[in-house]
Design a protein around this nucleic acid. Structure first.
Lengths: 207, 207, 207, 207
DNA sequence: GTGTAATCGAGACGGTACGTCTCGTCTTCTG
DNA sequence: CAGAAGACGAGACGTACCGTCTCGATTACAC
């Protein structure tokens, strides 16, 4: 069953080639519908109709609604990746979290990610794709920041990187999914600040 | 539509009263089905059949599958509430997180919470209930710990409580939902330790 | 798979009983659609919509469109059965053929039978039902007439009953299906007359 | 929409000419599929694949599946036409019916005719082609026999030719379509015998 | 030869209908 | 008289064919 997202491998040979136009129309239709009417409005039939496309065309290239959302999400999120250069770890983490916040609130990526997280609860293949294609690469970027900060002395040398990555990213998804608090620049700033300095008072940091 | 969960208010008047036996049978059937076959196995029809109950009986007391899951979850989670007395804030937070981890991995509450989070993405009423009946009370308990720690000097006085609550709870749900890492005692310990002490090296904690 | 038509066996027990009202609404909708728009207009979806019924309700009681047409046809044809009493074989055969002609041209049974014959070409189960529930009983009635005629001397004693039944009925279906000639009273009269007397001139009927 | 069958008009001019090889490959594939899997197995896609041909090539030369079946049928039936010379009407009719029986049971023409009859119920154009290209010419041959027999005194002079043609041909299609009895030489013989002599006993043939 | 013009295999595509599934409501009969 | 059994309308699901439409490759005739 391989990939959830249709690998864009350039096929060459006889036959009418896949229309790139259709592909983006479908991904955009899916995103639009999720914003307008929530997850349950984005049925396969509705996406097809909105995109001016037959249902079978969608099923030919994606195995499920989740896979469409996954690729639609990647399309929008593709550019929010670069590792800030020439700044300290603290600043780099802040830039990273702020970028994620902007991605989820300023674009259609927010509803898409909510759909992905929901569908992934009952679609193991999607869950795997979500981890491998989105979470892991993002965490790798942040891990790079952490390791740089540790080696140059800005961050504690005894840091558990995995735990720290959770601390940095978890609050974003926690608020996105449960919606109990705002996702904004101030949130990004406060979260990174607290992660950096901890919440314990005093000087002794022996544990 | 009032509450998502059927308020257990004891109805009084003529006629046969609601059977408590049936109520728990339904909640257990829902939980069992979610564990066995994932979220999508727990259809209303399947729950009814498993519980030996008519579908209409379920709809009479709960408005949706999410509401059943919500009440089933509350049933299992009801006892994991008490605020540890006579210990410091650090220890109390650790106890709290460890209890949550045990709840989600050692009981059927884990799959139930995953179902709740998924359904809440397309059910605003359920999302509200989830926040008001579960998240907020738990955060209140933790906030109480934080405030005590602040007033007795164990925690920094300039703490932003809401941000800190996110740091404490978010990693649990992040791992529960995305499944990229283990949910165990070691995870609980490391997470709380990092939240307490921060990740920045050195003494200066002015910000 | 047993019967094509839903045996109307009276079920007894708990649960809402099947609605007889719906059953006839479906059968009538199917008949109406076939008249108005030909066979291909009577899709399952169209029948359901016209009858104000869910598609699943139709599939619950009939296995295929052909089965619906079969039962719809039987409903309309149910009364055209009685064996004329007190008349000779010649007259009885004429009455029988004329009644069939009227059934196929004067009611909705004509388009239904055309649909049945068409569907039966690719539905062995329907073909069986069509033979057993319609053709065979009708042929039995005619066979009875023939045998009476033979025993009372009105018909030749060396008659091959099966062959004769074909000669009597075949022209009706031949014209119904291929539409190359009118189906009317004159047709019925001429056909029976020719079958009775043959086409050979002269007296000698040795073969 | 002109003809159902692609008129084989020889095009002249530049460009690659139509491949006769492909034409027969398609017609044979259609016939084979109908025999192997019944009517519904002979989808346009399946015919194309079996014939090693693109679907568009079929649609370029035939307007519908029925048209392909029509031409495939004509291909197989083309040779069963000749009017037997030098024999009486009785013998000629018997030869004719026996030839039709052999055509429908000994070759692939049987399933093809069943497909044609079925499709013609919802395709007026095909129904017309079926009558004009197959039924009418065959009936003309038989009518010729009848008229010869009438003029030479072998057959009754007051014969209604159309009615008689129905009596001769109808039983063949009746059995082909409903499948309630064998189509064999004995059937042909008995049918013609009964048509010739009628079923009424005695000498008086007043009507 | 070389160009021109058609046919051809392959297959993507917009549709329509299929037959199945679940939802949430409703009806009837039984304990 | 509460409730299980289950019929029901509604509508999404994923599949199968339909008939149309590109593509690039392959012919054959005309020059």
């Amino acid at each position: 069953m391989s990939d959830v997202t249709a690998a864009g491998a350039a096929r060459r040979g006889p036959g009418r080639p896949r229309s790139e136009e259709r592909r983006t129309a479908i991904l955009e239709a899916a995103g639009d519908l999720m914003i307008e009417g929530g997850l349950k409005a984005a049925t396969m039939g509705a996406i097809a109709e909105r995109a001016g496309v037959g249902k079978a065309t969608i099923y030919k290239w994606w195995p499920s609604r989740g896979a469409v959302a996954m690729e639609g999400f990647m399309l929008r999120a593709a550019d929010s990746w670069s590792l800030a250069e020439g700044v300290g770890a603290a600043e780099a983490l802040h830039i990273l979290v702020a970028a994620a916040v902007r991605l989820f609130t300023g674009t259609t990526a927010g509803p898409l990610m909510r759909a992905l997280a929901a569908d992934a609860q009952s679609d193991a293949e999607l869950a795997r794709a979500l981890r491998e294609q989105w979470l892991t690469p993002r965490r790798a970027v942040a891990a790079e920041i952490l390791r740089k900060g540790m080696s140059c002395g800005e961050l504690r040398a005894d840091l558990d990187v995995e735990t720290t990555l959770d601390l940095v990213f978890a609050p974003i998804y926690y608020r996105l999914i449960f919606g109990h608090g705002a996702l904004d620049e101030a949130f990004a700033e406060r979260t990174v600040a607290h992660v950096l300095s901890g919440i314990r008072s005093g000087e002794g940091r022996t544990e």
